[in-house]
Design a protein around this nucleic acid. Structure first.
Lengths: 255, 255
DNA sequence: TTGTTCAACTTGTTATGACAACTTGTGAAG
DNA sequence: CTTCACAAGTTGTCATAACAAGTTGAACAA
């Protein structure tokens, strides 16, 4: 029975309770992920779920709609709601560190940490990270090797506090993303990317052992935490002959 | 007697009325795009919109919720619904044709249709489109101009049925995506992309009026319909000096 | 003037009810 | 046996209603 039966009481309680539709969404998500609701199987009907959770159909529908938007379930008019199969490409849209992605595919990545220093932020870096020009930031230069071949040069700027955490972490084998999440306890949100094609300059020729004028994929990436605060600004240079950036995007639909 | 008794007939009729929330959503979208509702301005309240359109608040809320998911508006609890500023990154996570994206940002795109022919599918194209080698497919070559400057060369392969529809459509100003959706009535699903950096070859030098060996962004894209059937296979070549591929990705989270 | 309270607005959540539209199995008619 | 109509169950749409919760400005008190 919903607490709203006792408005005076519920008003006094600390409002830590999430909305019902969110609670139900999370319970359903847990059941799907732990296999209680198997892929391709039909879930209980909206009416049944309403009875199970003791809420109205509109609340159940909101929870199901959210899960549908996420792609965890699909619904067929007149038939029911079904658990979606985990897709091969699933998650490729999602923000993932490079080593994270490669190790998921069975490759091993080694990083050559060429530089880690604390410097006053220059104009562009300061603007991207949302700090003042001259504030201390950490600058990290890494060359990443895949199968002993240099694959990319990555230049990273982070705020000083994160830089200190990275300093004491294992940057040779671990992704910065994972360090930020696991060691700093910061939840990553989204990243804005810009990809372009350029020609190798002297620094890239030396770092990636390629010829002058070879094609290079340049990616500029600004990663934010879940609150939208910019965390990590990077310039990534990938060898054009050895790397393809692959991902999957979905078309926006009316739902 | 309901028309549904005659499914074959009702399928031929012009699409019966869309749901109210969708009609309202589209009217609001039009007002936002034509500037009637300016960026950052407050839109009428849900109650007012309900009075304007003569529907209940729940219907207005569904329309607003859809627009919010699209990023066209944002809502603040207790204040109102506001028109979002057109962001450079807007919707770039979503599958969008290039002209579609550029026109949303106020740019005008012109296509030079260099070739449209029906040929037997070669091995790779057949495999991507899920047809047999030798089956007839359409091959389309277009050069796209932004502000009278050649920007990209796009080579597209589609199955014969879609090719026939494209043949009779306006490929000079319209996106293939939009033609497929609006003229063929096929709902697009997702696309798999691969991006790499290459050097211009002779064909690209001629088509894009760039120098030999200039950097070019090469994108291979296979677009599927909502059921996962491959529809449209493309090779896109963008001038490295004039184009950045920008988008935003989100990290997978429980919430 | 300054600070506080409060009324009036907004969006967010939830319930109840009704009907439309779609899917599928069942049973009757041929 | 085959075909068709229909009932039962499902999701989709929409209305009305109420209260919660956040925002803001105006009235009021110090």
């Amino acid at each position: 029975m919903p607490l709203t039966e006792f408005p005076a009481l519920s008003a006094l309680l600390p409002t830590d309770e999430a909305p019902l539709h969110r609670q139900i969404r999370e319970q359903l998500r847990a059941r799907i992920l732990d296999g209680s609701y198997a892929p391709d199987s039909r879930m209980p009907s909206e009416a049944e779920l309403g009875a199970i959770f003791g809420v109205s159909r509109i609340t159940v529908r909101q929870a199901l709609g959210d899960l549908q938007k996420e792609g965890l379930i699909f619904r067929i008019h007149g038939k029911g709601s079904f658990v979606a199969k985990p897709k091969a490409f699933q998650n490729v849209t999602h923000l993932q560190g490079f080593a994270e992605a490669m190790s998921a595919m069975g490759y091993e990545i080694v990083n050559d940490l060429r530089r880690l220093r604390f410097i006053p932020a220059e104009d562009k870096v300061a603007r991207k990270l949302g700090v003042n020009v001259g504030d201390t930031v950490a600058e990290i230069h890494r060359v990443r090797y895949l199968n002993r071949q240099p694959l990319s040069l990555e230049i990273t700027w982070v705020t000083e506090d994160i830089g200190r955490a990275l300093e004491s972490a294992d940057l040779v084998t671990r992704d910065i993303f994972l360090i930020i999440e696991n060691d700093c306890g910061i939840a990553l949100g989204h990243a804005d990317l810009s990809i372009e094609s350029i020609l190798a300059d002297d620094e890239l020729v030396e770092a990636l052992r390629i010829e002058d004028g070879a094609p290079v994929l340049r990616i500029e990436r600004l990663t934010h935490d879940r609150n939208g605060r910019p965390l990590d600004y990077e310039h990534l240079y990938y060898r054009g002959d050895a790397f393809q950036y692959r991902f999957r995007i979905d078309r926006q639909h009316q739902g």
